[in-house]
Design a protein around this nucleic acid. Structure first.
Length: 521
RNA sequence: CGGGGCGUGGCUCAGCCUGGUAGAGCGCGAGCUUUGGGAGCUCGAUGUCGCGGGUUCAAAUCCCGCCGCCCCGACCA
């Protein structure tokens, strides 16, 4: 597509092979995924291969999440990939919600016929097995035998797993037929306790989004139409991508007693009475890697928050003679050792046969936050050349000035001692930048005219609007403007100027508070 | 499911209209010279041209059928 023009030209900038965002945002995203070596399309429709660099980011995210799950009292377990069809069918609403995207296993054997291997028709399963699109039903079937008394509650379990949803259209990380995620499934004695769990885990997600991923999020609950199939309440965090579209980054559901009833999970309470258990479930997926890319990256490649960068500092030796090579390499190793002692993830790039410039571009593309160059002059001066992947842009700043600000020659000791602080600064800067970007594309809107103008002319973003429409009205808005209610935000999530009651933007009916409208991924 | 595109060395693609037995750039390997923002030269290796059938003396190329993937839309985390 648009990157074909670059094909046979000499690379002019670091962005070679990456379509600029302004030209084609969707293509830019794909280019980043490929050029930063995060993932590949596989030969299976809709399924991706997560490459080591992409997987390393996921592993760091996993660690951050898992630590928080443990800290809030959860333990990990693992349940089967296959769900008997009858299990899924038990919770009607749930089944209906996922029916259209289920992969189904119907046979268990292959057979060679005329030299060709194929499905053995004689091996048909008595009951088809659904490849889990989510695990509520199989897990609750098990909970039935685990829960008898209030003493067994709360049951706080998380599972790290892959799930399959046969989506009609897929996009690397954002929506793949198979994806990796975590799903928490908890059982509680009371509604209040379960609802508290829902809020607790949403807070964990928001914490990871903002303080680890550096992606500011709006917290709220879904409208009836957008709720998880089978849930009574779905809470979510919504991030804004650089094109102004919203991305749902995590959900936490109060499932009421629906699943307990369909799986017949009762417990004896303190008063000696049988009661159905209250359930929650909550999850985030590899989609978060997509959110990371679309929030922070630029036309030169991936930009990663230091907390999630598999490599935080890359050090490149520069030399001409074998003597210089020996000396700079020794210094590079020494610096690496000292930085690692601070707990930093450091990579020494002493590959031969690649010029330093080639290495710079590669690591920029891959989003390494800081690069250190060590040449003969640095050895003489006892300095290190510290180059940041990004700095906060100033208005009207030239490309050269920006580049100059990224690069600093620092006394060796200062550079090394200050590295952890620099990581923290960059982590904060990234969040601040993402926040500013979101603010810039956020409007308080009171009329349909302004609404339409915002989503057409200005390219859209987050719109705070009053809403008192029906489910049908929501659909009408979606058809007309391609927007949806991303969430009904919690009171403290609404900008102060936008709080309080008003009139529905569509129907004019009284509205208690504003909702968040946006186009969404 | 509808619309579009693509399938040829590892990658991106040219060649196809007008059939004559496969090319370029990048990458890869060796050697020499290079190295503070993508190195240069020399030599070298690498192909069931998506699959099946047909037409023909001859098919990457023409015809028929099939398959797969990607992109755009309707559905979704």
């Amino acid at each position: 597509m648009s990157n074909q023009q670059n094909q046979k030209q000499q690379p002019a900038t670091a962005s070679d092979g990456i379509t600029p965002r302004a030209q084609d945002y969707g293509q830019w995203y794909l280019d980043i995924v490929k050029r930063a070596d995060l993932a590949d399309h596989s030969s299976v429709r809709g399924c991706m291969v997560i490459k080591p660099h992409g997987y390393a980011i996921w592993e760091k995210l996993q660690r951050e999440l898992d630590d928080r799950f443990k800290a809030t009292g959860h333990v990990n377990a693992y349940f089967p990939l296959f769900i008997p069809l009858s299990f899924l069918a038990k919770e009607e609403e749930h089944a209906a919600g996922f029916a259209k995207e289920c992969a189904v296993v119907t046979h268990y054997r292959l057979k060679a016929v005329d030299g060709k291997i194929g499905v053995d028709p004689a091996s048909e399963l008595e009951e088809p097995l659904v490849v889990r699109p989510t695990s509520e039903t199989i897990i609750w079937a098990q909970y039935k035998s685990w829960i008898q008394s209030y003493r067994d509650l709360p049951l706080l379990i998380n599972q790290w797993a892959n799930v399959v949803r046969w989506e009609m259209r897929t996009r690397l990380f954002l929506r793949t037929a198979e994806f990796l995620w975590q799903e928490g499934h908890t059982a509680h004695a009371t509604e209040a306790e379960a609802r508290e769990e829902v809020s607790r885990m949403l807070a964990v997600y928001a914490d990871v989004a903002e303080n680890v991923m550096a992606v500011p999020v709006v917290r709220g609950r879904k409208t009836e139409g957008e709720r998880f199939a089978g849930a009574i309440d779905t809470q979510c965090i919504e991030g804004m991508m650089q094109d102004g579209k919203a991305l749902q980054m995590g959900t936490s559901h109060y499932l009421g007693q629906n699943f307990a009833k369909s799986a017949d999970v009762k417990f004896l309470n303190k008063e000696g009475q049988l009661e159905y258990v209250h359930a929650t479930s909550w999850g985030v997926s590899t989609r978060l890697v997509g959110a990371l890319i679309m929030t922070h990256s630029d036309d030169n490649g991936l930009v990663l928050p230091p907390k999630l960068a598999p490599i935080q500092v890359v050090i490149v030796p520069i030399y001409k003679t074998p003597d210089e090579q020996a000396r700079t390499t020794a210094e590079v190793q020494a610096a690496a050792t000292e930085l690692r002692a601070q707990g930093l993830a450091v990579k020494v790039d002493d590959r031969e046969g690649l010029q330093p410039g080639a290495k710079y571009y590669e690591w920029e593309r891959k989003g390494v936050p800081v690069r250190i160059e060590v040449g003969p002059k640095d050895l003489e001066k006892g300095s290190l050349c510290v180059v940041r992947r990004f700095v906060l842009e100033k208005d009207g700043e030239s490309e050269q000035d920006l580049r100059k600000r990224k690069k600093q020659f620092l006394p060796r000791a200062e550079a090394i001692a200050g590295m952890t602080a620099l990581m923290e600064t960059m982590q904060k800067d990234l969040l601040a930048r993402a926040f500013a970007m979101r603010e810039k594309k956020t409007r308080i809107i009171d009329t349909l005219e302004d609404f339409e103008a915002f989503f057409k002319g200005e390219g859209g973003g987050f719109a705070w609007v009053h809403w008192a429409g029906t489910h049908e009205d929501e659909d009408a808005m979606a058809k007309r403007y391609e927007t949806s209610i991303r969430c009904i935000p919690f009171e403290d999530q609404i900008p102060e100027a936008a709080r309080g009651p008003g009139k529905c933007i569509l129907t004019g009916k009284p509205s208690a508070q504003r909702v968040l409208m946006a186009k969404a991924y």
